[in-house]
Design a protein around this nucleic acid. Structure first.
Lengths: 109, 109
DNA sequence: TTGACACGACACTAAATGGTGTCATATAAT
DNA sequence: ATTATATGACACCATTTAGTGTCGTGTCAA
C-alpha cells in the first residue's frame, strides 16, 4: 500500500554504472548530500542530480532537504524485484548446466 | 578461461523488457529460431534480431545455423553477475530495515 | 527450376540518454 | 550587509537506442 510510485523500471535504473556506484556509495554512508556525491564522479553536479532523479523515480533513493543541501538515502527494497527475477534463472547455471553450456560454446567456434 | 567475450554489460542487456521476454522464452523452449521468436512480439524481425545480437554480446544467448534458420539458445550463467550484485544489498531489506524505510517514506510526505 | 521462406546487412529515423553550461534562489558564514 | 555555497530548473547538444523498410543470398519444397 505504500511504495508503488514506480514511475521508472528498476532494471532500467540499475543499468547505468554511475547509478550503481551511487547506490553503492549510499549503501555505505547512510545519508549524503548532492555535492559530496558529486565529488566522487568525473562529471558535473547537474549530471549526478539527474541520475539521482532516475533512482528516485525507481524508488531506490529518498531525499530530504536539510538547510541548503539535499541529502540522499538508499531505499534498497525495490531491488527485490531484481533478485526475484534472477533467482528464477539460477537453476540454469547449476554445475550440470555449466558443463553443457561449455560444450555448446566449443561447438560454437 | 572460456566465456570472457563480454562486449556488452549484462546489466545493460537485461534493462530492456523485450530482451527479458526473449530470455524467458528461451528458458522455456531450449532452442528457437528467429522467426518463431519474432512471432511473439509486436515488432518486426529486424528489431528482434538486433535484441538477440545484444544478448549475444552480453553472452546471454548462443546461436547456431540450422538449414536456413538461425536457432537461439539461452546461456544464463552471465546472470550470476546480477545475482552477486543484488545479493550484496539484500541485507538492506531485512524486516527491520523495511520498517525504517517506511517511516522515512511517511516523513517524506 | 521455380517460388516461397529465413535471414543478414544496410540505410534511415524518432526519441531517449547522458552529458554540458547558465541563471535564479535559498541558506550559511563573515 | 555581503559573499560564498548548494541546489533546482532550463536550454542545449552529441550519441545511442529501438524501431522501420529494402535488398540480396542461401535453403527448402513443389
Amino acid at each position: 500500500m505504500s511504495e508503488n510510485n514506480q514511475l521508472r523500471d528498476v532494471f532500467d535504473a540499475i543499468a547505468d554504472p554511475t547509478r550503481r556506484r551511487l547506490i553503492h556509495l549510499l549503501a555505505e554512508a547512510e545519508e549524503l548530500p548532492l555535492h559530496e556525491l558529486t565529488a566522487q564522479f568525473p562529471m558535473g553536479r547537474t549530471a549526478v542530480s539527474k541520475h539521482l532523479t532516475i533512482l528516485k523515480e525507481a524508488g531506490l533513493v529518498l531525499d530530504r532537504k536539510v538547510g541548503r543541501e539535499t541529502r540522499y538515502r538508499l531505499n534498497a527494497s525495490p531491488l527485490r524485484e531484481i533478485q526475484d527475477w534472477v533467482a528464477f534463472y539460477s537453476k540454469f547455471w547449476s554445475t550440470n548446466m555449466l558443463r553443457l553450456s561449455q560444450l555448446l560454446e566449443e561447438e560454437e567456434e
